[in-house]
Design a protein around this nucleic acid. Sequence first.
DNA 1: CGATCCTTTGACCTCAATCAATCGCGGTGG
DNA 2: CCACCGCGATTGATTGAGGTCAAAGGATCG
Lengths: 247, 247
Amino acid sequence: MFSSTLALQNFVARLGALSPLSNEDAAVLMRLPVDTTRVRGNLDILSTGDGFDYACLVVSGIVARFVQLRDGSRQYTAFHMPGDMADIHRVATPAVASSLQTLSTATIIRFPTKDLKAAALASPGITQAFWAYATVDAALLTQWVVNLGRRDAKSRMAHFLCEIGMRSEQSGLADRHEFILDASQAQIGDALGLTPVHVNRTLKSLKESKLVSTDGRIIRVLNWPALAALGDFDPTYLQLDNRREAA
Amino acid sequence: MFSSTLALQNFVARLGALSPLSNEDAAVLMRLPVDTTRVRGNLDILSTGDGFDYACLVVSGIVARFVQLRDGSRQYTAFHMPGDMADIHRVATPAVASSLQTLSTATIIRFPTKDLKAAALASPGITQAFWAYATVDAALLTQWVVNLGRRDAKSRMAHFLCEIGMRSEQSGLADRHEFILDASQAQIGDALGLTPVHVNRTLKSLKESKLVSTDGRIIRVLNWPALAALGDFDPTYLQLDNRREAA
DNA sequence: CGATCCTTTGACCTCAATCAATCGCGGTGG
DNA sequence: CCACCGCGATTGATTGAGGTCAAAGGATCG
């Protein structure tokens, strides 16, 4: 498992990979007061302006960002995995708050927005890094748009699995060929714009094509190249630390 | 029409509405060298790392951000209207470049990324403002995801028209009840994830319901409340300057 | 005044939604 | 220990929204 410190380290390392961060900057971030909470699954983490204002770092589990429609249905707009900071954009514009929900049981660290803001104000390097981080988040959103707008169910699912696989690998918890996707098929549907039933059928079809297999919520990718091809997946947008790739 | 200076003023005013900007900061931005270009429609403005690196401010027309798939089809991920700065996120992470295309003939101002970056580095206020601006852009992306993921064609179109209407009004060029949407139905389809044929039918159906009428590329909204209700449209996410609303 | 691009409309088909039932599993109380 | 319950996964039958294919009108422009 992942400890709180490791999650924070992972986050800071990714910031540093995106934007130069001095040792002092990194140290400031690592010294932020850490308030770790275990949250049960399927719970809304109301982060909308109820006075107590925080961003949250995922330690374990998945924290999903969503928009709720009037009819009660939800569209997930991001899945935050361990090491990801959800809602960092609140530092820039508190008014644009998003709703967060745990998919399964999760561990998170709450950082008061004002602490993060103070850190940003005190150091241009930190501001730049936060912004760069938020930019990558927006790049994921962009791909999500493409996925929903232009791909059919199988291709969409393939792209989604590839993204989750790469990001699981990045978090250091798994590798792209075998990772846990701790979400129900209904939740996956709310991410992909599909009904639960069709998520099931789509997965079934991917299994029949020997692209993936599942074991509970463990996803095994049997044929990564074929899955990536089906999903038209190009990982560039994830802005992974390619220093590791080069090694 | 809109002059280059007005477009820049509009942009700086919006920045100021999102994040406090000192007079000095605003003056610095207004003094940026302005290189106005007229670009014919349907042209790609390749902004992907070909050495000459710039962000662009829209003066007239629509500049669309898109992702191109292997099969050549496109998904638009943003429509930039007059007064909008496209691609400002390049200041934070040049690696995350997006492709831009003019829909119809447009006038744009190219700002070398390095000038914007220099302005940001010189003033924390400008950095914050740029970041806040990028955050609103991401909020639009989020809505785009919801629109594609959860709404059927009529509702999707309604939401889209409401957004474009509000933003046209914001640019000072039109009002939400009558504005120019200078895009072909095929281009609208590439934004909404619909085929050109279905865009046509959807519009037809909105006209039959007396929600909108069109005259060439002029959109007239006949019943704003009904259109907004159909599209489940809540303009909060646009982060418009509500000082004007209050007046 | 042809050429080209865009809009509009019709006929047909397909992918995914909907409706409905069954199955399997982990928890829980008698 | 076992019957019961509830959630999630799975599957079948049917429907419907939107895609595809094709052709006919309008505009605009050299």
